[in-house]
Amino acid sequence: MRALAPGRAARLVQLALVALLAMAPLLLGDFRLFLLTEILIFGLFAASLDLLVGYTGLLSLGHAAYLGVGSYATALIAIHLTDNVFAGIAAAVLSSGVVAAATGWLAVRTRGVYFLMLTLAFAQLLFTLAITWDSLTHGANGLPTPKPTLGPGDGGGALDGGTAFYYYALVAFLIGFGLLRAIVASPFGRTLVGIRENEARMRSLGYGVARYRLAVFCIAGAVAGFAGSLTVQHSNYMSPSGISFEVSTLALIAVIIGGRATLVGAVLGSAFVFIIRDELSSAFNEHWRLVLGVVFIGVVYLLPRGLSGLPARTGLLSRRIQTTAGGSA
């Protein structure tokens, strides 16, 4: 396996993308900027799922569980302790990491559909817990939360207004995304791909496959929790519907549409899903699911490597890690 350094063209494209994102508030109206913020946050969440689905070949249908734990942790800290964003993020990353460890311990022992169903089960159990634990979560009605602040203590440096929050979210996104990329490029990340491609061989080489799986499950969970924290800070609200089956499914669809095992694909896929749902919804009324389904089928048929596989075909971006289309189900 050759780990190629990103080509020059690729680096230019990356720079241009970051510059474009930095200038977005100048180019977009309030609503589009709001949407872009949501896309970045959801994209980070989907990218953390890609770590499992794409790189490790673990198809999770309950990744929203860890997003939800992070969201609730941030919401509760904001309501009961402090509005400070860093406190919220720390609580979110820690709690979702812990919950991922507790559930992942069981989940990584299973494979394929069993893994899929166990992750779904954990998400549904947390969903139900959120609905029934009224004194903590305020049940199905959900928790409105105060606006987050950057400064120490309450009220200092309020992240008010769409532009301020956008830049905050962009920085957070770049940190989270950079972290995921570093993990993928590290020996640890390459081991994960090795396990996905040939588990028996990695085992015979002396890798503790289960430990690797658990580790990546915790990392993915913690990053999802990070995204969950941002979600609450943006919408100032959390309810059990944030852990719903639909959230997990949409993230999975975003990963597949964008392209597995690319990270950037997950973000592109998220943008695509949001645009279909929010931009085309006026054109297709309430039938955006139909459109999404058709696009999804088209991608599975024609672009097994997703949207981000398109430029690779034309040689614009060199893949860091060449991946085969199918993980193991």
Partner: peptide, 17 residues
């Protein structure tokens, strides 16, 4: 779509756009 977060996006669109 019955989802609070989607509703917030749509509200933002109605108000600002």
């Amino acid at each position: 779509a019955g989802d609070p977060r989607t509703a917030l996006q749509k509200a933002e669109r109605l108000v600002s756009e």
